[in-house]
Simulated scan of single mutants.
Amino acid sequence: MRLTIVQTGDVPEPLRDNFGPYHSMFERMFDGTGRDFSYQVVGVEGNSLLPDPQHIEGIVITGSPAGVYEDHDWLPPLREFIRRAYAAKTPMLGVCFGHQIMADALGGDVRKSEKGWGLGRHTYRVTGRPGFMADAPEALSVACSHQDQVIVPPAEADVVLASDFTPNAGLFYKSGKALSFQPHPEFDDEYARALVELRRGKAPDAVVEKGISSFTDASDSERVAGYISNFFRLATA
């Protein structure tokens, strides 16, 4: 299956030499699932044109430092791309900002949360078990890095992951062709930890220290990557 990775942001400059471009993290994640994926990477800034979603096999929308409420000239075309993809029932995944812009484009409410920064490995309750994650345990622990949140999901979306900090952390859409997560299953622990350290001076010290200590908890990122792979397999069946 060929995935079109819509890269809406990149690894922060201080970390880029050590961790490479952001799209490669998704490619490694999908390659690790053992299924046959290939990749096309499309940027959103500059004069890049998004492809016609009716003519691509699957979509991945990445994280970004941008907020959906900001004034970027690439946001309206991306919203339209998401709406067209949803209408065409093209399988689509969003992660972090991708999760937020999908919700925003499809009728939800996304804002900077009054709860502040979510950093480190968070644990989310599994609140729904669609077929691609039918064997999910009661909770899943995955790295996150965000301030914005989906405050109100679109009417088309059901919540499948939730926590007290992030009540709408995972959304599966009623079409069966769209899925999104606030946390980052594509992050390995080394990068996720470096990203928390990079937030020193921006996030409160106590939040940073709690984020660093959270990596002693076991990660479920590989399991979530498997669910995502299952989702794409079932969505294209």
Rank of each mutant, 00 (worst) to 15 (best):
L93Y: 04
L171Y: 05
F215W: 11
E186W: 00
D217H: 09
A66T: 07
Y227W: 15
G58K: 01
L179G: 04
D10G: 06
L234M: 15
P153K: 05
S221D: 14
D158R: 15
I82G: 02
L161S: 00
R200P: 07
C144A: 12
D220F: 07
P65A: 14
P77C: 09
V160Q: 03
E209T: 05
V159T: 15
I101D: 02
F81P: 02
S141C: 12
G201T: 05
F232T: 01
C96I: 09
R28F: 07
Y191I: 09
D10M: 06
K177P: 03
R28C: 03
E190P: 02
F26K: 00
A218S: 06
D104Y: 14
R129M: 10
S180E: 12
E114C: 09
G170S: 10
R223V: 08
A66H: 06
P185V: 03
N230T: 06
R83W: 11
E57D: 15
E138W: 03
A139W: 02
F132V: 06
P154V: 13
V68K: 03
K202W: 11
I82M: 04
R129F: 07
D220T: 05
G211T: 04
F165H: 15
F215V: 09
H184F: 08
G176K: 02
G94I: 01
A143V: 08
Q147I: 14
Y173H: 06
E138H: 11
F19W: 06
A88G: 13
Q54D: 15
R2I: 10
E186Q: 10
D205E: 15
S145Y: 01
L179P: 02
H99I: 02
A134P: 00
V126R: 14
G116P: 02
F97L: 00
V95F: 04
I5V: 11
V207Y: 04
R129G: 01
Y124A: 06
D71W: 08
E197W: 02
E186G: 05
R79P: 08
R28I: 06
E138P: 00
E45P: 00
A169F: 10
V152Q: 11
L234Q: 14
V60Y: 02
H99F: 10
R35Q: 11
D164W: 05
